[in-house]
Design a protein around this nucleic acid. Structure first.
Length: 568
RNA sequence: GCGCUCGUAGCUCAGCUGGAUAGAGUACUUGACUACGAAUCAAGUGGUCGGAGGUUCGAAUCCUUCCGAGCGCGCCA
């Protein structure tokens, strides 16, 4: 239920509760009734049993009577069932609230996080490797969290923490210098780069000496050898072109590319700082910072002097705070990096950076294959993201040709629906859970799916196209609701809190679940209530609801980074 | 071996800080297009919430333990 409604109700009923309770505390108690017949909003009173020394059902009954005596104008009914107080609002009140909600320019936006700055790092693939299903999650979850943060009033800086530094670039440079003539870098730069990468690892299996060559090249790269640097830059550029193509399709937008290489000239200072803090220890030839518990130490510098992933992440965290000035620093990566980030955060804490509490690692489960287990690009065991998107779009094209062959811009719509289906499918599940990769599953558009939500919005738009009456600016003065209408109104009023909860828990799937519920409610309404009728006032009222639904679906899908077509 | 995460209907999954009779989709059985698009809707079948203890007025949710799966565990990122 809308925040303003909770505020209003809490203010009114506060006086009947025992002293000491605040309005905010009261507001936190409101919940959505499990069974909609109970009411529009409910409040359990079990928490008062201990202080009042009475049984919850009696407390509920007493409070219920007192609330009734207050004569709150916008309340229709207050009832008590076992330990709950259930509220029903007057229809005109709900209509007013809906109108204000829809009128408020940017639907669902709040100013809560105003002036706060969030830096969020997401997507971040590794140069030379094509994006796979795993990057789908990293990109799409990250972008959704970013959108959610913006909806809550945060200023967001989206960072592409490109994996463009490390020994593998030494390896790639070595491979390029020795084998480039075997590939068509001219016409197929990225494909060639990937092939040369796979070849290197295959040959290094047989001939481990190659790894030494690669490591040596990386040391030269880190030392700033201009010729090697130039080759490295080539790799990065080739890769970014490819990634940007896919991100454009997914609607993923970063504000800054700050690859690992960006921090390479800050690492000496960083290591000095760690040393000054007395944290740096030599262990087995390498430099580490030890944890105070049973976690393994955090590797800072390899025995050959080269930097490591953690070294660059430490520099990056400091950069995000001191240069970008973030109030929140969020990393979106797979669960497999959990230990890494816990180590990095601990090192920051030991360096007395108290802002480490503002850093959070939002992790997501891994895609895996049922038979062969974890995917590995190196071993060629991966499903490329581009293939998934293409297959999905193709499948949608087939469905459109069957269901709506006269549609004009089939290509464009198939792209919106096909890509949307993939995104929705991923975001609809709790991000922490692992996902078994199966083509049938990822290309299944029936039931609870992106296309279902898009289709619902499309049908709303269709009604409005057909209507000869324009959508009224204000809610028509005919607010008595039929059951299906009321259900729809209540769901529409839940949008705002859904965004807040989704942001609070960093769970885009709350938004997906909400949209599915809203669509079910709308479709039920659609089948029961004829919108365009002979009664102009009734038509206006229902048209208003159709338009509101369409707007909320479009906004909600936007949060999930999914577009809404006009027709499909 | 140690650490972390997950285990909910035949299948795929929701379930918000513990709250009312555990919910969707799918599959299966029915019904609704001379209706604003049937990629829809309505109804039915289907659950010892992995097992066992515990905390609580109340547990799918918190704690302990066992079982199963996944991930991680020093010079990759």
């Amino acid at each position: 239920m809308k925040l303003q409604i909770k505020e209003k109700l809490a203010s009114e009923i506060l006086k009947v509760f025992p002293e000491g309770l605040t309005r905010t505390q009261l507001m936190a108690l409101f919940e959505k009734p499990k069974n909609e017949k109970h009411g529009h909003l409910s409040m359990p009173v079990f928490f008062l049993a201990a202080t009042l020394k009475k049984a919850p059902p009696i407390i509920a009954k007493d409070l219920c009577e007192k609330i009734s005596e207050l004569g709150i104008t916008f309340l229709d009914e207050v009832t008590s069932v076992s330990g709950f107080i259930n509220f029903k609002f007057k229809s005109h009140f709900l209509a007013d609230e809906l109108e204000q909600f829809i009128k408020a320019g940017a639907i669902g936006l709040t100013k809560k996080g105003e002036a706060k700055k969030m830096v969020i790092d997401y997507g971040s693939p590794n140069v030379a490797k094509p994006m796979n299903v795993g990057h789908l999650r990293a990109s799409v979850i990250g972008q959704a969290l970013r959108n959610l943060a913006e909806s809550q009033g945060y200023e967001v800086v989206g960072l592409n923490h490109l994996g463009d530094w490390g020994v593998q670039f030494g390896k790639l440079v070595w491979a390029y210098q020795n084998w480039k003539q075997d590939y068509d870098f001219e016409n197929q730069p990225f494909k060639s780069l990937f092939n040369i990468y796979v070849r290197f690892h295959a040959e290094a299996e047989k001939n481990p000496e190659l790894n030494e060559f690669g490591a040596a090249k990386f040391r030269e790269l880190e030392a700033g050898d201009p010729e090697i640097l130039e080759i490295w830059k080539l790799f990065v550029d080739m890769s970014l072109v490819e990634y940007d193509k896919i991100w454009a399709r997914l609607g993923v937008k970063h504000d800054l590319v700050r690859g690992e290489s960006f921090y390479s000239d800050q690492l000496d200072d960083l290591i000095d700082k760690i040393k000054e803090a007395g944290l740096l220890e030599k262990s087995e030839g390498a430099f580490v910072v030890s944890m105070d518990d049973d976690r393994p130490p955090c590797l800072i510098q390899k025995s050959d002097g080269a930097s490591l992933y953690a070294t660059r992440d430490l520099a990056s965290a400091i950069y995000r705070k001191e240069v970008l000035g973030c109030d929140l620093n969020v990393y979106v990566t797979g669960v497999d990096q959990k230990l890494h980030f816990s180590q990095v955060f601990t090192v920051l804490e030991k360096m007395n950076y108290d802002w480490v509490s503002e850093c959070s690692h939002i992790m997501f489960g891994m895609y895996r294959f049922k038979d062969s287990g974890k995917m590995s690009t190196r071993k060629g065991r991966a499903i490329f993201l581009e293939d998934i998107l293409n297959q999905s779009v193709e499948k949608v094209k087939g469905i459109i040709q069957e269901k709506n062959p006269d549609l004009k811009n089939i290509e464009e719509v198939a792209e919106i629906v096909g890509v949307g289906a993939i995104i929705f499918n991923d975001l609809a599940n709790d991000r922490i859970k692992d996902v078994d990769f199966e083509w049938d599953k990822i290309l299944n558009f029936s039931g609870n799916s992106g296309p279902y939500v898009q289709y619902t919005a499309v049908r709303c738009k269709s009604i409005m196209r057909k209507s000869t009456i324009p959508v009224p600016e204000r809610f028509p003065s005919m607010p008595q609701f039929e059951e299906a209408e009321l259900d729809l109104v209540l769901r529409l009023l839940n949008y705002e809190t859904t965004l807040g909860e989704a942001f609070k828990h960093s769970k885009p799937n709350y938004v997906a679940a909400y949209l599915l519920e809203l669509c079910q409610s709308y479709n039920s309404f659609y089948n029961k209530c004829k919108v365009l009728s002979d009664d102009p006032r009734l038509t206006q009222k229902r048209l208003y609801l159709v338009d509101a639904t369409q707007k909320v679906i479009t906004e909600g899908l936007k949060i999930l980074n999914i577009k809404t077509p006009e027709q499909m």
